[in-house]
Design a protein around this nucleic acid. Sequence first.
DNA 1: GAACAATTTCAACCATTGTTGAATTGCGTA
DNA 2: TACGCAATTCAACAATGGTTGAAATTGTTC
Lengths: 211, 211
Amino acid sequence: MPKSSSKSERILDAAEALFAIRGYDGVTMRQIASRAGVDVALANYHFGRKIDVFNAVFERRADLLNTSRLSALREYQSDAGPEGPSVEQIIEAFLRPLKMALGAADEGWTNYLALIAYVNNSPVWGKSMMSSLFDELVSEFIAALKQALPKAREEDIYWCYQNLSGALTLTFAQTGRIDKLSNGKCRSDDLEAAYATMIPFIAAGFTRVCG
Amino acid sequence: MPKSSSKSERILDAAEALFAIRGYDGVTMRQIASRAGVDVALANYHFGRKIDVFNAVFERRADLLNTSRLSALREYQSDAGPEGPSVEQIIEAFLRPLKMALGAADEGWTNYLALIAYVNNSPVWGKSMMSSLFDELVSEFIAALKQALPKAREEDIYWCYQNLSGALTLTFAQTGRIDKLSNGKCRSDDLEAAYATMIPFIAAGFTRVCG
DNA sequence: GAACAATTTCAACCATTGTTGAATTGCGTA
DNA sequence: TACGCAATTCAACAATGGTTGAAATTGTTC
């Protein structure tokens, strides 16, 4: 909420934070406006209808996230020989930008990732919204995984990717809340630990199923 | 929608199906009543406020699910020696009842699992609602995993469980929708395949991280 | 069958919602 | 300074939301 950012961006920030927590239908235009410190009608003026605000929020950071992930993958690819990067490296490239995003002081990225979790887990728009923005990138990673796991059946790779996607999604959704089960030993927002555990976990799964 | 079931149960069925797809705020009492073929006021009469309808739906099948999962685990435990069941067996016990539920002709269980996915992924009530109904059972499985992985650090087991939970959650959320990415090769509702892949995938992850 | 309770419907209330059109302000430019 | 356009606010509408009290129906008990 720095005063430097424009009102139109403050609206997106507010919408992002609210949608991420309460979902599309759990948020009203008035709540967004109130949090942004603007009039109710302003969101309509800038973006159109409520669903357009939601889409604007969802698309705002997508490109940045995609290029960030892709460049991490490309780095590994140019460092590797003709056999391409390892499974572990590919997974790490897929997760690294997110870790950095969560490490940032700005909590906007945290909210955005929680929003992605909400969308990805939503039976209604889940598939279509995610596909339109992230399929291209995901295909890139799938291709890299195929190369790293030449013996794998294609379906197995997709099922494994779904496991990866699910693990990520739940982690994003819960960042910032304390895990009761572990008596506070694991904080959901301790992304460092989650990240460190997830990479070998997922890589081992891929290797076992597709190796 | 068999006529045999009482109106109060028809309300729960309708609410279950709708909440699972559109979430709590995306469903109106009138939609529930309409789908159940009853008057709007009847849901209030039977259950109280809207949130109480939601809770009633969420709690209705929880016990059955818990006992089903637990008995699968107990079976493996009594068949195993003093070292207890293997990681793979424990995971399988955790998933098997769900597979059976999804194989049932009744689509009520499918809806219920999608609802669990919605709740578990919700930053708002996720942790608290899941804990109140499933923590006891999960602790049982965690204990079994500890025994099967004696060298594991406790936090690692919890982080691995979170990966398992996330993979499951996403699968439940998407049952019935077609996966675009794989060009229809993987149908999200092909639980047989998802199930077959997930067990070795998750087991390998646990073994690698906690072995 | 009468009395009584549980169930179900009917009708309506009031608060809130997304959205809009008109009015107001802010600001760069001729 | 006056004009023009974008940005912003104000006020309000029509629709829909959850909820409720009273009436009507059904079921149970004596």
